[in-house]
Write a protein that binds this DNA or RNA. Structure first.
Lengths: 158, 158
DNA sequence: TTCTAGTATATTGTACGCAATTAATTAGGC
DNA sequence: GCCTAATTAATTGCGTACAATATACTAGAA
């Protein structure tokens, strides 16, 4: 008799817990950022730029973990809304420099204050919040370093 | 002088940790499920159906946390690939019953075996895995129950 | 200098994810 | 039985995500 295969239940899966939590946070931020007409990926793009502006699309992408296929249209929308400016580099015309607009610089404090108020609703103290984040990041590193392409599929063809 | 606003750094954010981990898991499963030509949302749909089939679109959506706007086209693709069958209910024609195809029933064991092999790459023992999942689910519940719409924005207009 | 390999961004195509709307159907009150 | 409210999917529109490809440009080798 063959070795019995370990069962997989949806609600036991770490991936599903992360997938669900991430979507819920997205929804949370959709409401929290509504006064500013920002989406969550747009917000983290601003977070990265508030820490360091200007950046090239590539540098920005390495911070938020998004490639040009996502960032190019996203940044164009943000440019239309007046959050960022896009300027092709004069020395190296392959690069596009993304910088904060005055509107984004001015709004930073109001956005931080409002988002912080919303975050208070979570009812997580700083220690719990940090521990949760560290736990997630620990798992995240493990996932990042695992490469399922190494596992050859030996079952029946589908 | 106004109260200084607490700073928000991208890499300190729990939301960003979850967002990143979720995307990495998506990539992980894209590779793990490649032999079966399944995407991650299609996989969790199968997981739900393996536990309970048939289900209406609504029931299925309540398990995987997706609405008809996502599920209808996803299920049509899965029907085309031969994973599921879609049949409008005879008693209540508003409902569509989704059931596993024979192919999906037959492939279950091979998929579980291969996914389990890939999961071993994470190098997380059962206890660590469960604790991590529980931590994520704890935060997930907090996020679910927080409603930022309750917080009135009092800053400057954007 | 000219060729070539490499780099940076943009584009294309496919698949989600979800709010809002529509269409079809059912069920409850009278 | 008839009207209305509620329910269930499907559709539409917009915004991600990302692999694969295309395009433009740079820099180094011969």
């Amino acid at each position: 008799m063959a070795t019995p295969t370990k069962n997989i239940l949806l609600d036991d899966q770490l991936c599903f817990a992360l997938y669900t939590a991430s979507k819920r946070f997205n929804h949370f931020y959709a409401d929290a950022l509504a006064p500013f007409k920002l989406t969550y990926p747009q917000y983290i793009t601003l977070l990265a730029l508030w820490e360091n502006s200007p950046m090239t699309v590539r540098e920005l992408g390495s911070h938020v973990n998004l490639d040009s296929g996502t960032l190019t249209p996203l940044l164009k929308r943000m440019q239309t809304q007046g959050w960022v400016e896009r300027k092709r580099d004069e020395d190296d015309e392959r690069q596009v420099n993304i910088s904060l607009s005055q509107k984004a610089i001015d709004a930073k404090n109001d956005i931080f204050a409002h988002v912080n108020s919303c975050m208070d609703l979570l009812g997580m103290d700083d220690k719990t919040y940090a521990e949760t984040r560290n736990t997630v990041n620990f798992a995240s590193d493990r996932i990042k370093n695992a490469d399922p392409k190494k596992i050859k599929y030996t079952g029946n063809e589908v």
